[in-house]
Design a protein around this nucleic acid. Sequence first.
DNA 1: GAATTATATTCCTATATAGGAATATGTCAA
DNA 2: TTGACATATTCCTATATAGGAATATAATTC
Lengths: 110, 110
Amino acid sequence: MPRASTTSDAFNAVAEPRRRDILSFLVSEERPVNDIVATLNLPQPSVSKHLRVLLEVGLVDVRRDGRQMFYRTNAEAIRPLHEWTGTFERYWRNQLARVKERAEASEKPK
Amino acid sequence: MPRASTTSDAFNAVAEPRRRDILSFLVSEERPVNDIVATLNLPQPSVSKHLRVLLEVGLVDVRRDGRQMFYRTNAEAIRPLHEWTGTFERYWRNQLARVKERAEASEKPK
DNA sequence: GAATTATATTCCTATATAGGAATATGTCAA
DNA sequence: TTGACATATTCCTATATAGGAATATAATTC
């Protein structure tokens, strides 16, 4: 069995660094495809393909205006990832606290 | 070109749902491989392979004790994902606020 | 309707999987 | 040293890519 499809969920879609770049670029306002191509310096077909993946998993929305397609990040779709990773937060906090404690203990050995 | 390797970074490693299950299971305390096998109901070789991927990207640590290998989630390695997704938080907040406004506006049409 | 602009799709290929089965390695205990 | 237990590795296969090149579709303007 190969890996799960990139379009199977947001986790898989977001594993590709270029797609993360696109999401960051499209987060504050909608942009036509050409803006993405120009700003991220990627071949146009490549951008179109990445956008298709992002669209399929709901990470972006589109709107057509004349011959331009305006894409925009759907931040809501990123939320589940933030929440899943957030379940580990208290643990890295604890780890950091422990590291700090040890550092201070060895600084003042008495 | 195929997709980036699962071991290329935490984003790729975490795209696989079984690996996420393993990370959640190992977060509060270290566990021998057999515990993972028993609890998550997966074939032992499969678990070993997933652990190898997680280990390579630093998402887990290991310690050997006799014939057992104790694995534990390294929460710190998940932090970058939480931070990246966190950059979108204000946008989904805004989206929600807008949705709410509209809902209230249509509730009281005057 | 022909040319132009904007975007999407198709075809190609090399490659890295995940899972299953079988087997190997490593450690302890009698 | 033999056997039992715990974990890791190897071999196999089907499949889904990402990127490049070429082309298709769609909308606009002249």
